[in-house]
């Protein structure tokens, strides 16, 4: 973070409104939504996105506080700055939502996704797959004489890159969890 402590891509809620809200450029934002873990809460969030025509590029959800019954939903969405602000406001007024954080706007954040890749092949391709997996720090979690299942954690971009490399080497299936994200620092 810069010495001035101006948040990168600050939202309309900050004192420094640095974004052009009339911009038509599509931005990708990662939102963290803390919700009451009650029946139907995920449907409320997803229904908001489908009902109002917003995009969901990725979504993960799990209870993060078992005593307080709080779940954290991480949504990667895309839209113009005005749409992103509207999504945040619309999420905020759902009664079972406690907090909404636009992690992309609030400052640097770490984003990680877990993926499993099934790669089948023999000979050179198999050796190359294993070699690349090592470079990408993917773990082998299942192996037969003709296949591997690799497990990898990383940014969505890293996972995309690895998938591209595996494609000609016999990529059969891929399973991704979607992004989990936290802001950097305390």
């Amino acid at each position: 973070m810069s010495a001035l402590n101006i948040k990168k891509g600050s939202t309309s809620h900050s004192a420094y409104d640095l974004r052009d809200h009339n911009a038509t450029v599509i931005e990708s934002h990662t939102l963290a939504v803390i919700v009451e873990n009650e029946p139907g809460v995920l449907a409320r969030v997803i229904g908001l996105f489908s009902g109002r025509g917003y995009n969901i590029d990725s979504l993960t959800v799990a209870e993060v506080d078992h005593t307080g019954h709080r779940s954290r939903i991480t949504i990667v969405t895309s839209g113009t700055p005005a749409v992103i602000d509207q999504i945040e406001a619309q999420l905020g007024r759902i009664v079972s939502v406690y907090e909404v954080h636009d992690l992309t706007a609030e400052g640097p954040c770490v984003q990680r996704e877990l993926a499993l890749f099934k790669v089948a092949g023999k000979g050179e391709a198999r050796i190359e797959a294993l070699r690349l997996a090592e470079i990408f720090r993917a773990n082998v979690v299942d192996s037969t004489l003709e296949s591997f299942v690799f497990e990898m954690t990383g940014t969505p971009e890293k996972i995309d890159a690895f998938a591209e490399l595996m494609r000609p080497l016999g990529l059969r299936e891929i399973a991704r969890t979607g992004v989990a994200a936290l802001s950097r620092g305390a």
């Binding site: 309309s12 809200h21 009339n22 005005a82 602000d85 509207q86 406001a89 619309q90 905020g92 007024r93």
Partner: peptide
């Protein structure tokens, strides 16, 4: 009173 009403259709100078 509804944050989602502000800047939804028309961008305003003083919300």
């Amino acid at each position: 009173i509804d944050p989602s009403s502000i800047n939804k259709v028309i961008r305003v100078d003083v919300p």
